[in-house]
Nucleic acid binder design. Structure first.
Length: 564
RNA sequence: CGGGGAGUGGCGCAGAGGUAGCGCACCUGCUUUGGGGGCAGGCGGUCGCGGGUUCGAAUCCCGCCUCCCCGACCA
């Protein structure tokens, strides 16, 4: 394609509304334009990159045995009400009403539609297993769209759904998708980690998230430096406490009150009592089923609220706030102890092991206690991984050291089980004539998000540096000014096109500096420069975008020009 | 939804009561020609929207809308 025919041009300045590199560069280089908050138009360059990702995903899905379908974007709301997800999604769904007052939504995902579809189509065990996927636009009215394509309200997603006769079949389908995902991201040039995920709204138990490592990621995940364990920080666990942390001391002296006037914070108490913050037991009050609950964790740790919610599920947790403490003088904030008489449930972090000894609140203003022994002086109703995992914590699998990184979630795989098939009547008849719900899995890849994630991982100050598989064109042909140069470039352009090479040919009447700067910004892997210097010797210069390396090859030698 | 910031030519910005300006981009011409040149000329703006104050509003006041950042939220 000739640059002079390309729609959309490059900007010299960063757009004022873009913060992260992928957003800035994709706009500056003319790949996308914002239409509304979280909604983007794809210009020709961007459309081509999107198509590249789609193609890779399609090839890997097909190779994994999935069949492509195309489901509607406008979906009736009724099945969403049957699965209870209309409520669960709430305002995240774009809703619309037709002229007869029938209610619809714009697809945020497609479990309901696909399950209803399969329910009417597959009724025998002979029809299973099946894995259906589509690539289509999805809509979520995010509270806060941000970072350009990374959290958009309209985004392109590949969603796949597997239907099996039993758990073993699901396990096979899941494994096949998991492996296909690894290959897909690798082909896209993304460095990803597969981490144990949190399930969120969708339900189901086993699931993994594929995280593209990036500073601008919205998710923290932990990973082990010694084994392949990795997990979203929301569900991350850590290994047993190191011996330095409150070792069990069954023979500890009796619990003893110590005055700590005015010391209501962990650092103050630690300093006053003369122990490390990690030797304190931090107590957080929450409400569960109208009763008082206490969460207990080492003083130097933050509470993972998702973990607490999981520990008391299905009951709902609400941490007490300022008003609650104001209303309950029996809960002296800053001096709470786990032996509070009003507490009906005490959930401790796993590092608060039975028999371990702690300094903690005395449930009396200006007082704490020392030698509080877990299980002796305060009850341990339940133990869970309540603390947010930190870098340096032990791995729960192998005991190695955990690291923490940020990532962009580019894919997720779920074992759903029968939640949707039961709610929507997707059943099959087995060989004995009995009816069973199908066992489902679902698998998503954020196609448009991959585009942004790849730019986050592959850019520099000058612009984007696409992995070859995703570049909108294979190379950029740059014609400089000079005697006979334009004619030579035109001939080379024709020959390259004749050889089936996708070329972006900068045929503009612009200065060399402008063309070089734009080429670096647009980010094709290879720049082929036809200029007066080389042409005199029958040579063109090549610049490799990622390495910055340059070489010269004969202008007549297509193989040399295209060599990597 | 809470906190913060911003809406002025296509893009980036200045202007803070006296009738709109700069850089880039775009158009014309000359010049220049291997890393975003130079000179000259030119096109282009309901100053987010609505109301108010004033002789006069981009500027002050009120209301609304939109966008961005932090948080909450989030297959």
């Amino acid at each position: 394609m000739r640059w002079s025919q390309l729609f959309g041009h490059t900007w010299r300045d960063d757009p004022a509304d873009a913060e992260v590199p992928s957003h800035r560069l994709l706009v500056r280089a003319g790949y996308i334009r914002r239409v509304a908050s979280g909604i983007y138009a794809w210009l020709p360059l961007g459309r081509r990159v999107l198509a590249r990702v789609e193609r890779i995903v399609r090839e890997e899905m097909d190779a994994a045995g999935a069949s492509e379908v195309l489901l509607p974007i406008v979906q009736p709301l009724e099945p969403w009400q049957r699965t209870g997800r209309e409520q669960a999604y709430g305002p995240l769904m774009f809703r619309l009403t037709d002229r007869r007052e029938a209610r619809y939504c714009l697809a945020p995902t497609a479990e309901e539609v696909i399950t209803s579809l399969v329910a009417g189509e597959a009724t025998s065990y002979r029809d299973l297993p099946r894995n259906l996927y589509q690539i289509g636009w999805k809509y979520r009215d995010e509270l806060r769209p941000r970072f350009g394509l990374l959290r958009a309200r309209e985004f392109l997603m590949k969603d796949a759904y597997s239907f099996d006769v039993d758990a073993a079949g699901l396990e096979r389908s899941y494994r096949a998708m998991f492996d296909a995902y690894r290959r897909t991201f690798e082909r896209c040039g993304l460095e990803v980690r597969a981490v144990e995920g949190s399930s969120g709204e969708i339900g189901g138990e086993v699931n993994h998230e594929f995280m593209a490592v990036a500073a601008v990621g919205e998710d923290d995940f932990v990973w082990c430096r010694s084994c392949d364990h990795a997990a979203n920080v929301e569900v991350a666990r850590r290994g047993g406490p190191p011996p330095s942390v409150a070792p069990p001391a069954p023979a500890a002296p009796p619990m003893e009150e110590v005055p700590t006037p005015g010391a209501a914070s962990i650092p103050e108490v630690a300093a006053l009592v003369g122990v490390e913050p990690s030797a304190l037991a931090k107590v957080l009050a929450f409400e569960v089923d109208g009763e008082l609950g206490l969460a207990v964790l080492p003083g130097d740790r933050e509470l993972n609220e998702v973990a607490l919610a999981r520990a008391v599920a299905p009951a709902r947790v609400r941490l007490l706030g300022d008003e609650d403490f104001a209303a309950r003088p029996d809960l002296p904030r800053g001096f709470l102890g786990p032996h509070h008489p009003a507490a009906s449930l005490v959930v401790v972090d796993r590092w608060v092991t039975p028999g371990s000894v702690w300094v903690t609140g005395a449930n009396t203003v200006d007082h704490h206690v020392r030698n509080a022994v877990a299980g002796r002086d305060f009850p341990v109703d339940r133990a869970a991984d309540l603390a947010v995992v930190r870098a340096g914590d032990p791995c729960p699998v192998c005991g190695g050291e955990l690291g923490v990184d940020r990532g962009i979630e580019v894919g997720q795989v779920f074992q759903l089980g029968t939640k949707y098939s039961e709610a929507l009547g997707a059943t099959y008849t087995d060989a004995e004539g009995r009816s069973h719900p199908m066992v489902m899995g679902c698998y998503g890849i954020g196609i448009s998000r991959i585009v942004a994630a790849v730019v986050e991982q592959h850019h520099d100050e000058a612009g984007i540096a696409w992995p070859p598989a995703l570049a909108p064109f294979r190379l950029q042909l740059i014609a400089l000014a000079g005697e006979g140069v334009r004619e030579a470039a035109e001939r080379l352009y024709d020959r390259l096109r004749g050889a089936g090479v996708e070329v972006l040919y900068d045929d503009r009447d612009a200065r060399a500096g402008v063309k070089f700067a734009d080429a670096d910004l647009v980010g094709l892997p290879l720049q082929v420069i036809v200029g007066p210097r080389g042409l005199a010797a029958g040579l063109v210069e090549r610049k490799h975008r990622r390495s910055g390396g340059r070489d010269e090859v004969p202008i007549d030698d297509l193989d040399a020009i295209l060599a990597s």
